[in-house]
């Protein structure tokens, strides 16, 4: 057997394993009646419509999207000055903050979730929707931190020096040279954090689970009362969003480089 056949077989097997459950879910989501059968009986887009028309599902969708958009923005706001400082200054002790930013991502998620739950409960804000935004921002700050650190390390310092020689001060250099150069890394960091926040369950559940139902929390609650094709439709919707976002990053950025750096950071 040649390497080529072997590779083809391995790729087909892994592709089937990865896509299998999603194919079944996609099939289930177009059932005509409210039952989970596969292959689907009849064909209907109605369950997809229900994500937007049913009040409960729509509220969860809005809650999830707003949470993800704001949490990812806050994560970038924390990561940007930190990674800029680490790149601009010689201050080895400041790496402690990089470590703090990466820690929630490496430790089992239930730990961060429980820490935040005890914290919000202790200071009396447990269940407030805005606490979820801060919680998710801290939980996912790793992603923009890693992409931005990579972006800064790829800047040619002679460019910055040239600007400084021509009389630009720190602020002008930042605005006219550095920000345009790191913009792609900033956008991908935001996108990674956005997609992961959209899918996050345990932190959202432990901090605001009883006052605000994000989509993953809603799906899990719905699992207990029996299955509906709407859950399948939401799942397909999520896979599509993730594929779209990562596809865009791959189209406009350098995905292999982005991933190569990410994992060497985690090692």
């Amino acid at each position: 057997m040649t390497l080529k056949t072997l590779r083809w077989l391995a790729f087909a097997a892994i592709a089937l394993f990865m896509a299998g459950p999603l194919i079944v879910v996609a099939g289930v989501s177009v059932n005509e009646k409210q039952s989970l059968t596969f292959p689907p009986q009849g064909f209907s887009w109605a369950w997809y419509g229900q994500i937007f028309t049913d009040e409960g599902w729509r509220a969860s969708l809005v809650a999830s999207v707003v949470l993800a958009a704001l949490a990812a923005a806050l994560a970038v706001l924390v990561a940007l000055p930190l990674s800029w400082f680490l790149w601009r200054r010689v201050a080895p002790w400041a790496n402690v903050f990089r470590l703090l930013g990466v820690a929630p991502f490496i430790l089992p998620p239930v730990i961060t979730a429980l820490g935040l739950l005890t914290f919000w409960a202790t200071i009396g804000f447990y269940g407030q929707p805005w606490t979820a935004i801060i919680s998710h921002a801290i939980f996912f700050v790793t992603l923009p931190l890693v992409t931005l650190s990579l972006g800064f390390s790829s800047i040619d310092r002679s460019l910055v020096e040239a600007a400084a020689t021509m009389g630009a001060d720190d602020r002008t250099v930042l605005r006219t040279v550095i920000l345009p150069l790191i913009l792609p890394y900033l956008v991908s960091g935001y996108a990674f954090a956005f997609v992961l926040s959209l899918n996050e369950y345990i932190v959202a559940y432990m901090t605001v689970g009883f006052t605000m139902e994000t989509l993953p929390v809603k799906i899990f609650n719905a699992l207990r009362y029996g299955y509906t094709p709407t859950m399948a439709a939401v799942s397909v919707f999520f896979v599509a969003i993730a594929a779209l976002v990562f596809g865009l990053i791959a189209r406009f950025g350098n995905l292999p480089r982005l991933l190569g750096a990410m994992s060497s950071q985690e090692e």
């Binding site: 059968t37 596969f38 993953p216 699992l223 299955y227 799942s235 896979v239 993730a242 995905l255």
Partner: peptide
Amino acid sequence: IVWLVCILSVLSLSEVIIGFAWSTLFSRTA
């Protein structure tokens, strides 16, 4: 790149969705 996009999409999936997908795949009806 195509593989990486697919792998990232599966990786970002919520545990809830993975659990739901496999419980459907392992169910009697579907």
